[in-house]
Write a protein that binds this DNA or RNA. Structure first.
Length: 669
RNA sequence: GCCGCCUUAGCUCAGUCGGCAGAGCGUCUCACUCGUAAUGAGAAGGUCCAGGGUUCGAUUCCCUGAGGCGGCUCCA
């Protein structure tokens, strides 16, 4: 009696009434769930009344999320096994893994994580099944009376609010439609554990197998607000196979090897002296050399693109940041003021009022003052003011992170003043300028993000925001790159496009930002004289390309894993004599290289030849030049590259032009 | 800022159940050293993050602070 007709993986078929998806895919072990009429469901779902069903395999994005979400449930079961007093928060899948939040008396330790992993292993081996059960709000409240956080989630859902908006990850618990509880059933049918959950889940815990691992514990605010209590979060990862787990851990290890903080110390590039202060880097000679090259090339390109260079102080009176509204909006992100010039008499009475000076967190107010230093004509626009401007932001102590989140850093900051008519063309050419320049530093995989207005945190009228947003969107779209929306991500004064770049190991970094600003020109009453003699207000574009030089330095350091292309490498050539008698021969070659502007050194130390090769290789020097008797007699040198390949007997003049060409063309070797 | 962990030689890390502090690498010295990733020997190097407390005695235990790490919140 084949009386159900439906599309199965796109093929029209007939099945008996009462057939479930797991009947359908009984032979396919990698199918862990199904999409019925577009909705993800457990394999146990009956197909009555269904018009289309598709398999969800464990290695698909949906399948991986289901695997990880089920692993989170197993973790929670394990935690409550070990500690029955632990209260459950939420436990969603995330990129590469999952987490689960718990309210517990004592935070988790690495030892408890190990014990929990063992407990999870036992649950997995039991082969528990996940059973979905629809409950009413009241039933759920009764069953979960001992779980205060779950009750709160039920309340949120009841209030009609979007649960996923109310708490990141909460959507995985209560979803939008009916409320469901998932029971974990032992093989004898007994309920081992249960959790409020939208599902779907794996058919059996066995599928989590050997591919999971608990990674770390940390505190996290309940429902993501620092006003709420902190729960203890356990992060884990889960993969369909052990091999994939191992590969994932290897990716993490590779990222750790490339960590710019580690490479920065190893390669003697920069440090954060405790005596200076948290988040305030100092650059050592080699690091400063890389910076210099980064900046010099950028300067040259900016000159070619018609920018004017300015220089402004690091510190200014409070008035300037009152005008710019920074003190209204970001005072807590700024270093506290220095109160200067106050005079008191013998009684301690103020006889001359002092005033507050602030370290600058942004350069734009200063650049506005350059604009308004004299009358401006439409003929000067677009006026592009550029500065490597050092700024200071008082980042919270817990967020400071190497060069990527520092308290003092240098923006490659430009402010472009245009007419409204010029704005669109200027933005389009600006975006291609930005992308071209980033490519020259070795990054070439980009996407764009469009950050739009946050009504809670913005100045100005909606119509102006709409216009600005529309123009940015058009420019971004016409670049042909992928455009990802970032609603509410804009600064208070205008929407922005940000360029996200992927590095050598696939991580994305937010680099350049291009920000439209219709409001600061008002605040500073900026004006130019138009062709008809009227006074007009310019539009302002904020633009940082590296974002911060320090941060971009860190990104490049990790991207290249320290092996910079020759033009950026702090030491471009190390000359290694085969034995001491050839020191002078190589000193002469190095002198010629230096005369050609190459950063070259001879290793005249006491180490033996092989050790010198090893040292140069570990220092990631792009060109190692070797000479012994053969080379010296032929007036030649031999190249050894970082990967161990050789090019022997190259005549010195040819070697020099080979090196200088590679530097000039900014190629990697 | 919040939670947890950490801070010992220039670097990476041992160690001391409270009793004069250790290794490898690096540095320095001497000898050795002619073809592509570690020659050997010796030496120097420490307020065991800082301040306070407990103790006959603190690098070790307790408190406070600084700095770092992993998250959370934040990131103009």
């Amino acid at each position: 009696m084949p009386d159900l007709n439906l599309l199965i993986d796109g093929v029209e078929r007939s099945v008996e009434v009462g057939t479930t998806a797991s009947d359908l895919y009984a032979e396919q072990r990698d199918v862990v769930a199904v999409r019925v009429d577009g909705e993800l469901r457990d394999l146990a779902v009956a197909l009555d009344g269904v018009s289309a069903v598709e398999a969800v395999t464990i290695d698909s994005p949906d399948g991986l999320s289901i695997l990880r979400h089920s692993a989170a449930h197993v973790l929670a079961q394990a935690v409550q096994q070990v500690n029955p007093d632990a209260k459950l928060g939420i436990g969603p899948p995330i990129t590469d893994g999952f987490y689960y939040d718990f309210d517990v008396e004592e935070p988790f330790t690495p030892e408890t994580l190990k014990a929990l992993e063992k407990a999870m292993q036992r649950i997995i081996k039991e082969g528990q099944t996940f059973r979905r059960r629809v409950v009413s709000d009241d039933e759920a409240r009764a069953e979960l009376a001992a779980e205060p956080y779950k009750l709160e989630l039920i309340g949120l859902k009841g209030s009609g609010a979007d649960a996923s908006a109310a708490a990141e990850g909460a959507g995985a618990e209560v979803g939008a439609g009916e409320l469901t509880i998932y029971d974990n059933l032992r093989r004898d049918g007994a309920t081992a554990w249960k959790d409020l959950c939208r599902g779907p889940h794996l058919p059996s815990t066995r599928l989590i197998g050997n591919g999971f691992s608990l990674m770390r514990s940390a505190a996290a605010y309940w429902r993501g607000s620092e006003k709420n209590p902190q729960l203890q979060r356990i992060y884990g990862t889960a993969w369909p196979t052990k091999d994939e787990l191992v590969a994932y851990k290897e990716r993490l290890a590779e990222a750790e090897r490339r960590d710019h903080r580690k490479l920065g110390a190893e390669m003697d590039l920069f440090s954060f002296p405790e005596e200076v202060g948290s988040g305030l880097p100092v650059f050592h000679p080699k690091g400063a050399t890389i910076r210099m090259e980064m900046e010099d090339y950028s300067r040259r390109r900016h000159i070619e693109a018609g920018y004017s260079f300015v220089n402004t102080p690091h510190i200014t009176k409070a008035k300037l940041f009152q005008t710019s509204r920074h003190l209204d909006w970001y005072a807590e992100g700024m270093y506290p003021p220095m109160h200067l010039d106050e005079v008191r008499d013998a009684d301690g009475e103020v006889t001359r009022a002092g005033q507050d000076y602030y370290l600058k967190p942004m350069n734009c107010p200063m650049h506005n003052l350059v604009f308004s230093a004299r009358g401006r004509s439409y003929r000067e626009l677009p006026l592009r003011l550029f500065e490597f401007g050092h700024v200071y932001r008082y980042e919270k102590s817990g967020v400071v992170h190497g060069l990527t989140r520092a308290r003092g850093f240098t923006q490659d900051d430009a402010h472009i003043y245009t007419t409204r008519e010029q704005m669109r063309d200027e933005l389009a050419s600006l975006l291609s300028f930005v992308l071209d320049l980033l490519k020259d530093y070795g990054l070439d995989d980009f996407y764009l993000e469009l950050s739009t207005r946050d009504p809670e945190k913005s100045v100005g009228d909606e119509a102006t925001w709409d216009e600005a947003t529309r123009v940015l969107e058009e420019v971004a779209t016409s670049s042909g790159l992928e455009l990802v929306p970032d609603p509410g991500g804009a600064a208070f004064y205008g929407p922005k496009i940000s360029v996200q770049a992927k590095d050598a190991i696939g991580r994305t970094w937010q680099l350049s930002t291009i920000q439209l600003d219709f409001f600061e020109p008002d605040l500073f009453e900026l004006e130019y004289t138009a062709s008809d003699g009227s006074r007009q207000r310019p539009v302002m574009i904020h633009r940082a390309l590296f974002g911060s030089i320090e941060r971009f330095f860190g990104v490049l350091l990790e991207h290249y894993a320290g092996a910079f292309p020759p033009w950026l490498a702090p030491v471009q050539v190390v000359a290694v004599p085969v034995a001491e008698p050839f020191n002078d021969y190589l000193a002469d070659v190095v002198a010629q290289l230096r005369a050609a502007g190459v950063r070259a050194e001879v290793d005249t130390g006491d180490d033996r030849f092989n050790k010198k090769i090893r040292t140069a290789t570990k220092d990631k020097v792009p060109f190692v030049l070797i000479a012994g008797g053969e080379d010296a007699e032929a007036g030649a040198v031999s190249f050894r590259y970082r990967d161990g390949t050789q090019r022997n007997g190259v005549p010195v003049p040819e070697a020099i032009s080979l090196i200088t060409d590679a530097i000039r063309q900014r190629v990697q070797v």
